[in-house]
Design a protein around this nucleic acid. Structure first.
Length: 193
DNA sequence: TCTAAGATGACCT
DNA sequence: GGTCATCTTAGAC
């Protein structure tokens, strides 16, 4: 299968959408990446920004599916999500890693000349930077910018970089792909020590 | 108004 | 494999 995904694809449970996004091609600002790793977030998930209900920042997450939710974290990084679920569900899929398949020169210009190919979009903040995304892209309609790629296998695993619900297996990756980010548990997560 | 925590990445050893 | 940089957001008072 191939061709752009329509809004109904995203308007489902993010836990269902996430694994199906693996291998899909996302295009924005002159760069295309093939998704290798994603993570599902829902309103009933303590680790989700939408857990406490809508706020000014998370307003996009509570809107219709297929839009881009970009937020700023750790004082220096952007992360990008695709809003999923029904309108008002407060659900999204975090784009964690991917392989740049188009516009590599542009991605490298944004990321730095000395960055190796495999690190161009391996990581949520790296991917957002390679795509040229920042908060001005928050709320952007991504329907038409995501197209299905070759079907791929997926593996679910524990989530990284967060404390709450760190063992919820809502992180999906393409097994064995070199563009998947390394597993790294949050330093303060229970069981980390 | 103040405080604590955070869906991370770069660099050094 | 470990340490540090850096600032926004949200919640408490």
């Amino acid at each position: 299968m191939s061709g752009p995904l329509d809004r109904s694809f995203f308007a489902r449970d993010p836990v269902v959408v996430a694994p199906e996004l693996l291998g899909c091609i996302v295009t924005a600002n002159g760069v295309s990446v093939r998704l290798t790793e994603v993570e599902a977030y829902r309103e009933d998930d303590p680790a989700s920004h939408s857990f406490r209900g809508p706020t000014k920042r998370t307003a996009v997450m509570f809107g219709p599916a297929g839009f881009l939710y970009v937020y700023f974290t750790y004082g220096m990084h952007y992360c990008a999500n695709l809003v999923c679920g029904e309108d008002g569900a407060g659900a999204a899929v975090l784009l964690r890693a991917g392989e740049v398949v188009e516009g590599e020169a542009l991605a490298r210009a944004r990321r730095g000349e000395r960055v190796p190919d495999r690190d161009l979009a391996r990581g949520p903040a790296r991917l957002a930077q390679a795509m040229g995304w920042d908060r001005s892209d928050d709320g952007r309609d991504m329907v038409g910018a995501v197209r299905a790629g070759a079907p791929t296998a997926s593996v679910a695993g524990p989530r990284t970089g967060i404390m709450k619900a760190a063992d919820t297996a809502w992180r999906f990756a393409i097994p064995g792909d070199r563009f998947v980010s390394p597993y790294k548990r949050h330093p303060k997560a229970p069981g980390a020590g």
